[in-house]
């Protein structure tokens, strides 16, 4: 079985995001980039399948500027076999355009299983997996917390509102990975050293037919300093109101 992992490089979760002077993108100065945490679950799951003897090869594919090769090298260090960078000058906020460049390449590759994160933490669009499903005409199951592969039979547990589902499908298919699927490993230093020496295969591509674009970026209203709602049980009603109306988490 051949696995392709699509991963994205994103700014670190703790990064201090600053809007660039053009007002339409963020300034990359001083930002550390990491592999999208959900993509890491996909990488880890692929490696586990390979370690379990269920997969023969893993290719990680990513897109974006040159710096993305660092993320691909980390994937190599973790244990994927090959990496491919579809080099673009920037990122597109239009996921359909992104899915387009991925699909165009994936159509030329051999695969049985495509793993990716359920979403990326930068634009949080959560679209690529299901879009690729359409473009490649293969099934896709999203937000997966458990994956079993037996030959061409694929059984997954996926998260749904208020519970979970067990779903069966067959290869080739796309699985988008959710937290809880596994605990991604720390790349071995030996792996890091080997990855350092490897060349990242790069192909220049460009986005086509972008429909969605950013007009303007802005900062949200400053997150207020911790708010002491009140003292004792009397404050409970107000807390619940704030959680519902202000924080919108209930």
């Amino acid at each position: 079985m051949k696995i392709i992992v699509c991963l994205k490089q994103v700014p670190d979760t703790e990064a201090n995001i600053k809007i660039d002077t053009n007002g339409k993108s963020i300034s990359e100065a001083g930002i550390k980039f990491i592999i999208n945490p959900y993509s890491e679950y996909a990488i880890e799951e692929a490696i586990r399948l390979k370690e379990a003897g269920k997969a023969e090869s893993i290719t990680a594919v990513s897109w974006g500027p040159e710096r993305v090769s660092e993320a691909l090298k980390t994937a190599l260090a973790m244990g994927v076999d090959d990496v491919l960078l579809l080099k673009t000058d920037s990122y597109s906020v239009d996921s359909f355009a992104t899915a387009g460049i991925l699909a165009a390449k994936l159509k030329t590759m051999e695969y049985d299983l495509i793993l990716m994160g359920k979403e990326t933490i930068d634009d949080g669009s959560m679209q690529i997996g299901p879009m690729l499903s359409e473009l490649l005409n293969i099934p896709c199951v999203t937000v997966v917390t458990k994956l079993d592969v037996d030959g061409e039979h694929v059984t997954v547990k996926r998260e749904v509102e208020g519970g979970s589902e067990i779903i069966e499908t067959s290869t080739p298919c796309i699985i988008t990975c959710q937290k809880g699927l596994n605990e991604p490993r720390y790349p071995s230093i030996r792996g890091v050293m080997m990855a350092k020496k490897k060349q990242v295969t790069t192909e220049q591509v460009s986005f086509e037919g972008e429909n969605l674009s950013i007009n303007k970026l802005s900062y949200p209203a400053a997150r207020s300093e911790g708010k002491v709602v009140g003292e004792g049980a009397d404050a409970v009603a107000e807390l619940v109101r704030l959680l519902r109306e202000e924080a919108k988490v209930l």
Binding site: Y186, S188, I189
Partner: peptide
């Protein structure tokens, strides 16, 4: 560094040291 065997709770610490 060779075997990649270590207490897994060190993972977040390593990530933290690496990125931040």
């Amino acid at each position: 560094m060779m075997e990649n065997k270590f207490p897994q709770e060190l993972n977040p610490a390593f990530k933290g040291l690496e990125t931040n």
